[in-house]
Simulated scan of single mutants.
Amino acid sequence: MRPVAAGYISYSALKDGTVDLCDIARMNDWIDLNADNDARIARWREANER
């Protein structure tokens, strides 16, 4: 459901088989990577505030 909630695919694509488990896994990895990058950037900005 994470790719649907993130807006990458529609729920109907998930239900009708347009995407497979590999696609979903790749999208979940991408969502995790983006969240990790955003957290790292936020920590860097906080540490480098003047």
Results as ranks from 00 to 15, higher is better:
25 A>K: 10
11 Y>R: 04
37 N>R: 15
16 D>T: 13
23 D>R: 00
29 D>H: 10
17 G>F: 06
11 Y>T: 03
42 A>S: 07
10 S>T: 15
17 G>I: 09
24 I>C: 02
14 L>K: 08
30 W>I: 07
28 N>F: 00
35 A>I: 06
38 D>C: 11
38 D>Y: 08
13 A>S: 12
10 S>N: 09
22 C>K: 15
27 M>G: 04
7 G>N: 05
18 T>W: 00
42 A>G: 02
2 R>M: 14
43 R>Q: 13
37 N>E: 15
7 G>Y: 00
12 S>M: 08
22 C>G: 13
39 A>N: 11
28 N>G: 01
8 Y>P: 00
7 G>M: 02
34 N>H: 08
33 L>K: 14
30 W>N: 10
35 A>G: 04
37 N>G: 10
13 A>K: 03
42 A>N: 03
44 W>L: 13
3 P>V: 04
28 N>V: 15
33 L>R: 13
26 R>E: 15
48 N>W: 01
14 L>N: 04
42 A>D: 09
47 A>H: 02
6 A>F: 03
22 C>S: 15
28 N>P: 01
27 M>Y: 00
18 T>Y: 04
32 D>T: 05
21 L>E: 14
26 R>A: 15
45 R>C: 06
50 R>S: 12
25 A>G: 01
45 R>N: 12
42 A>H: 01
13 A>T: 11
44 W>R: 08
5 A>L: 12
42 A>R: 06
39 A>S: 11
15 K>V: 09
25 A>T: 11
43 R>L: 15
21 L>S: 13
8 Y>I: 12
9 I>Q: 02
27 M>W: 01
49 E>H: 06
41 I>E: 12
38 D>G: 09
35 A>Q: 10
20 D>Q: 06
6 A>P: 02
43 R>G: 02
23 D>S: 07
17 G>S: 05
43 R>N: 11
11 Y>F: 09
2 R>K: 12
31 I>R: 00
19 V>W: 00
24 I>P: 03
15 K>R: 15
50 R>A: 13
27 M>H: 03
30 W>S: 12
21 L>Q: 13
18 T>Q: 01
10 S>W: 10
17 G>L: 09
20 D>C: 04
24 I>L: 09
37 N>L: 15
1 M>S: 11
